[in-house]
C-alpha cells in the first residue's frame, strides 16, 4: 500500500477516534463524581446534533449560537439523567442498578427523539470550511474532519488543564476521590456533581455538532456511540479523562487500521478483542489508576 494511502487512512482513523474520544471525555466527567457511567451518553450526543439541525437548518441560527443553546438544553438533559437515573436509584440501593437505569433512560430519550425528529438520518451542513476536500500533497481531507481533530484535541487538553490547575478542577477531583471527606473540607459536592453533569452534557453537544456534518445527525446512532465511547474510556483508563480521549484516538486508529490492513469483516472482533486484551494486561486502562 502506498504511503499516501496509509497517511490518508491514519487521518481517517484520527477523525473517527476524535469523536470516540470526545464521547469518552463526556463519560469521564460524570464518572469523576460518583464512579457511575451514563450508558445513555450517546443519546445526549444525538440530542445535541438534532437540536443543532433544527436550529441551524430549520431556523437559520448561526452555528455558534446554536451550539451554546443546544449545549444548555443538553446540559439540562444530563442533569435529568443525574436526577432520574443515578441519584434516585443509587442512594436507595447502593448496587449496580444505575447500569440499567441509565441505559433505560437512554432508550426513553431515544424514543422521544424519534417521535420529535423522526427516524431518518438528517443532513447537517459542514460549518468548518467548504464542502470541497482540501489537498495536502496526495492526501485529501475535508476541512470539517481536520477541524474535528483540532477542536477535540484542544478541548481535551483544556479540560485536563482545568482539572489539574484550577480550584474548581481540584474540587472535582477531590469529590471523585472521597465525596464525604471533600464535603467535610468545605467543598459543596452537590454543586460539583451538578456542574459535572452539565459539563458532560455540553461536551456531548459539542461532539454532536462536530460529528453530524460528517456522519449525518442520526436518531439511531446513539447506542453505537455509547458503546464505542465506553470502550475508548475503558482502554484509556476510567479515572483519567485525557486517558479516555487518547483511548478514543487509539480505538479510531485501530478500527480503520484493522479494516484497511486486515479485513473489514474482522474489524469488530479486533476492536473488542483489544478491549479484552487491555482488561487482561492492564485492567485500569493505559492511563487509569486502580481503586
Amino acid at each position: 500500500m502506498a504511503w499516501q494511502t496509509v497517511i490518508q487512512l491514519l487521518f481517517s482513523g484520527l477523525a473517527l477516534g476524535a469523536v470516540y474520544g470526545l464521547v469518552a471525555l463526556s463519560y469521564s466527567t460524570i464518572y469523576a463524581t460518583r464512579n457511575v457511567i451514563n450508558f445513555g451518553q450517546g443519546e445526549l450526543v444525538v440530542l445535541g446534533s438534532l437540536l443543532g439541525v433544527s436550529m441551524v437548518v430549520g431556523g437559520k441560527v448561526p452555528v455558534l449560537i446554536a451550539l451554546v443553546v443546544a449545549a444548555a438544553v443538553v446540559a439540562l438533559a444530563a442533569l435529568l439523567v443525574e436526577w432520574l437515573a443515578v441519584r434516585s436509584v443509587k442512594e436507595v440501593t447502593r448496587n449496580m442498578i444505575w447500569v440499567m437505569s441509565t441505559f433505560g433512560l437512554g432508550i426513553c430519550m431515544n424514543q422521544l427523539m424519534q417521535k420529535i425528529w423522526g427516524t431518518d438520518p438528517v443532513r447537517f451542513p459542514k460549518f468548518i470550511g467548504k464542502d470541497e476536500p482540501i489537498q495536502l500533497g496526495q492526501v485529501t481531507m475535508l476541512p470539517q474532519e481536520l477541524g474535528v481533530i483540532i477542536i477535540a484535541v484542544v478541548v481535551a487538553v483544556a479540560f485536563e488543564a482545568f482539572r489539574r490547575n484550577t480550584l474548581m478542577g481540584k474540587a472535582v477531583r477531590a469529590t471523585a476521590m472521597d465525596r464525604d471527606t471533600a464535603s467535610l473540607m468545605g467543598i459543596d459536592t452537590r454543586k460539583v456533581v451538578y456542574g459535572s453533569y452539565a459539563l458532560s452534557g455540553a461536551l456531548a453537544t459539542l461532539c454532536g455538532f462536530l460529528v453530524a456534518p460528517i456522519q449525518f445527525a442520526d436518531p439511531n446512532g446513539g447506542v453505537l456511540l455509547s458503546v464505542k465511547g465506553f470502550i475508548a474510556l475503558v482502554i484509556g483508563g476510567l479515572g483519567s479523562p485525557i486517558g479516555g480521549f487518547l483511548g478514543g484516538l487509539f480505538l479510531g486508529l485501530l478500527e480503520i487500521g484493522s479494516a484497511s490492513f486486515i479485513s473489514e469483516v474482522w474489524k469488530d472482533v479486533i476492536t473488542f478483542g483489544a478491549l479484552i486484551l487491555v482488561m487482561l494486561i492492564r485492567p485500569s486502562g493505559f492511563f487509569g489508576k486502580l481503586g
Binding site: M1, A2, T5, Q8, L9, S12, L16, Q215, N220, G221, L224, E255, I256, A259, S260, E264, V265
Partner: peptide, 19 residues
C-alpha cells in the same frame, strides 16, 4: 466489500477500490 448498516467509515473500502 461488506459492512453493517451502522458503518461509520468507508475509506478502508474506498482506498482499496481505488488501488
Amino acid at each position: 466489500g461488506t459492512f453493517d448498516l451502522g458503518e461509520k467509515a468507508f475509506k478502508p473500502h474506498l482506498t482499496k477500490i481505488k488501488a
